[in-house]
Design a protein around this nucleic acid. Structure first.
Lengths: 348, 348
DNA sequence: TTGTAAGCGTTATCAT
DNA sequence: ATGATAACGCTTACAA
């Protein structure tokens, strides 16, 4: 054991002159902790010291290092979210609400796309957990086995959104896709359509859409629909193309030619509607079109699109509230069940 | 000075049992640094040790703490980006390309919306710099004075996209909005339209749209257009509503009723097109409609939308390449000028 | 109100 | 190939 003073010279690893709390402290003539308090607990800093710190911060254009702060305080100022597509319209309102509310509270959003692939989701979850985010927000409840294990093992709170499955350990904010399918069936049946069809998302990994289909088929069976609804999965990857392709295929059928079609989402339905317009097919005269999502264009199309509106913005708001609750040490309500709304317009 | 052995008991701050590198090391019977190497420089770990570490990692579902790693190595695995709207269609392709390429390289994307407000942008930039990202990607060159200072002072490389201004210190990947406006003018003039109008984004902060307008007006002056083009800024915040509102106002004019309208973006143009459809106005017969962006629906509308396609995906790809170049210690080309493409369809 | 010492979980450096 | 030690930049705990 050597005396502390006898320790060998510190090998400094800093090469670039990054500005740190210490630099600010030195310039302001205070200790590092005072600068730290200036940012985190300003009421605990005297007026004079605060003024000097403020001047130093501005002179140096200092921005505290959040990674270091998070490490020291075991608190992270990021929230991570995995969505099927960060730039798609489906989760736009959810993302917007979540992101804005979190930003207002000083939290930033880390985003990744899964493209409806459980492998992509797993990669994203793994990468995100490395940041020890304040929460991890997912947009599905269908995960790979490895993802499930990660979710179980991590200390990071997980919020599953846009889904509802009572028996899971995670927080959930969502609705029943099966019920959406049932509502669609009831609406179309109620309007007198008797030969129904369903158009899947071209991405086979969209299991929520599959559930909407299942609810749709189930309700139709109960209502007395003849046989299961025809279901097609288009090949085109681009959703509007896919919708157009599916409608063409359905209307070309000799048997079970549908008089109404429930599309897995509004992008598909919109593609179908525009294709019908171009081909001169009458909607809902020749065929009724029904969607899911109530995207921005739904009420503007001609005919306007009948659809089901999910509580997208609300989900984002509640997710943000949950995160802040968790950060505050409280436990939010585990299950938040929201309702979708049938929006009856001209197309069905 | 007390002897090291006489130091008071460490006050341990850890309360929850977070799994760390040390836990993995202990379980694998190696030192912490070996576990670190297992993740970062696997070739430097012996086969036996690696196998034991691997087993321990899996048994504990261990995920390395990236904040701690980044702090120690002075390298960050995040890239931050500010866009006007994270969920809008404008930057969708750029975001997608950037996010996917970065994810493939092990980098995550931190995102925030500015909503065309320089104050929002400043807040986002400040928050992002706290993470010491590998790069900060912006989508404009118009910033608040404070943002400019932050950009100047920070060590973080800044990439400005969707713009081009030779004299700035930042990396730039973009195109000339003024040229876009000129191209629109040339196209419409070439098709014989002689009474032109421009529709602004309802968000006054969209200065790029303003530049498109300026280029448009400038080129028209050169071409011999009678007076400056009529320019309107709609009130409605929702872009499709705004486009419809603007078209209605323009067609109601007694004097200078336009025969062709250049909309600041495709969302506005789409709103106008759908409104025209509903009102029974003929496009381009009664009025021609021209947009900017080439969003997904542009070629599906009836009539299909003539527009200008920006190199959105390419910008994202090049930005990602720049980030990786920077991380590798190289300096990317400072200025990347890309071209837009006029897409002549049915509406103009 | 302010400061000192120690610790957060990882990696750089140097040694073996 | 592996390890010991210090360092990264900040905050907690405790002291003054």
């Amino acid at each position: 054991m050597t005396e502390p003073g006898a320790r060998k010279q510190r090998t400094t690893r800093r090469t670039s002159q990054r500005t740190t709390l210490m630099d600010v402290a030195a310039r302001a003539g205070v200790s590092a902790i005072t600068v730290s308090r200036f940012f985190n607990e300003p009421h605990r800093v005297g007026a004079e010291a605060a003024a000097r710190v403020k001047a130093a911060v501005e002179a140096l254009d200092y921005v505290p290092n959040l990674a270091a702060g998070g490490l020291a305080s075991a608190q992270s100022r990021v929230v991570a979210m995995v969505v099927p597509n960060i730039s798609g319209p489906i989760f736009a309102h959810t993302l917007e609400a979540l992101s804005d509310r979190l930003a207002a509270a000083g939290y930033q959003l880390l985003l990744a796309s899964s493209y409806f692939s459980q492998d992509n989701e797993e990669r994203a979850v793994r990468a995100f957990l490395g940041w020890r985010p304040a929460a991890l927000v997912l947009t599905s409840r269908h995960h790979s086995a490895a993802t499930e294990r990660l979710i179980e093992a991590t200390q990071v709170p997980v919020i599953e959104t846009w889904e509802l499955t009572p028996r899971r350990p995670t927080l959930q904010i969502g609705f029943s896709h099966r019920q959406v399918g049932r509502d669609a069936a009831a609406h179309l049946w109620g309007r007198g359509y008797r030969q129904l069809a369903f158009v899947h998302n071209s991405a086979a990994g969209d299991l929520s859409a599959q559930e909407r289909h299942d609810g749709f088929a189930e309700a139709l069976r109960e209502l007395g629909h003849r046989g299961a609804p025809v279901a097609v999965r288009p090949r085109a990857a681009a959703p509007m193309e896919a919708g157009a392709e599916a409608l063409r295929a359905l209307l070309a059928r000799k048997r079970q030619r549908p008089d109404a079609v429930f599309f897995a989402n509004d992008n598909l339905a919109c593609g179908a509607l525009l294709a019908a317009q171009r081909e001169g097919w009458s909607v809902p005269g020749d065929v009724a079109v029904f969607g899911f999502g109530d995207y921005a264009f739904a009420d503007k199309l001609l005919p306007s699109l009948s659809t089901i509106r999910p509580p997208a913005r609300e989900i984002g708001e509640i997710a943000a509230a949950h995160v802040l609750t968790l950060v505050g040490g409280q436990q939010p309500k585990r299950l938040t069940a929201l309702a979708c709304e049938v929006i009856a317009r001209e197309s069905a």
